[in-house]
């Protein structure tokens, strides 16, 4: 295989909130089967980019394709892990119920999740190490367990491309390991992952591709090629003196 298949192609993506551009003319090619981190300073537009790709907000310009077809036609190939702070965890529902929501798009109208969906959800929970929590009320979960619940919901989507918004944000060591394992399993299965990531120290350890973003795309490509001091300084404006890339 000479030319790699592209899982995600973003062209000219521009998003503006009240005339102020938050994302300016971003192009991005993501080959199939890579784990790509999107890094950049606060306010760089990382979450905005994810949401614009997913069609959750309307971009001023731009085009997104998944496996060479417009995003709208390929929705069933896409999985999404939102920031866990984006929902009210006091909602009256159980962990299993939340995970089964991953299947709502495929179920269609009127139909309720059945025994097969339940089993699939239990399997997804097992993969994230939460098999014992299926019946748990979601308000009783720790932050890491909330994150793993969202991850299980995305696994339930059985997608080809996963978009994750800060999956490692404020999680415990157990959850961090669980997420890393799942990312590796996904890659082994030929899936593609795009994750907004905050911790520059772990980029080269957890991901093989990286995109540096600060309103514009600074660089993107394999970690060992583009995760350079120079690119980081461009993205972060010289405030990365703490970074010790090759220990």
């Amino acid at each position: 295989m000479d030319k790699q298949t592209l899982a995600v192609q973003v062209a000219d993506l521009t998003v503006a909130y009240q005339e102020k551009p938050v994302l300016w003319d971003v192009d991005l090619d993501v080959p199939q089967g890579v784990l790509m981190a999107i890094v950049g300073p606060n306010g760089a537009g990382k979450t905005t980019m994810l949401k614009a790709i997913l069609g959750l907000l309307t971009p001023a310009a731009g085009h997104v394709s998944i496996f060479d077809k417009p995003y709208q036609e390929q929705r069933s190939l896409v999985g999404y892990v939102p920031q866990r702070g984006s929902v009210d965890w006091d909602f009256p529902t159980s962990v299993l119920d939340v995970v089964m929501m991953g299947n709502y798009g495929k179920l269609g109208w009127v139909r309720r999740p059945g025994a097969a969906d339940r089993r699939a959800a239990e399997l997804a929970l097992e993969k994230v190490g939460m098999a014992d929590y299926a019946g748990r009320q979601i308000s009783q979960l720790s932050g890491g367990q909330q994150q793993r619940t969202f991850l299980a919901r995305a696994l339930m989507q059985d997608a080809q491309v996963y978009f994750m918004d800060e999956p490692f944000q404020g999680v415990d060591a157990t959850t961090e390991r669980a997420i890393v394992d799942i990312l590796k399993d996904l890659r082994a299965d030929g899936k593609t992952v795009l994750a907004v990531h905050h911790d520059l120290q772990t980029v080269s350890e957890y991901f093989d591709w990286v995109m540096l973003l600060n309103v514009r795309r600074i660089a993107s490509g394999p970690v060992d090629e583009v995760f350079t001091d120079e690119n980081l300084r461009t993205a972060y404006g010289g405030r990365v003196g703490f970074l010790n890339k090759k220990p």
Binding site: Q72, R75, P82, V87, Y104, G105, W109, R112, R153
Partner: peptide, 22 residues
């Protein structure tokens, strides 16, 4: 009753619902 799961999804996680194409 008919739109039970859609209403539940709307109330819990509207954006995720939108990402599913609903």
């Amino acid at each position: 009753l008919v739109f039970w799961k859609e209403f539940k999804l709307l109330s819990f996680d509207r954006e995720f619902g939108a990402s599913l194409g609903l």
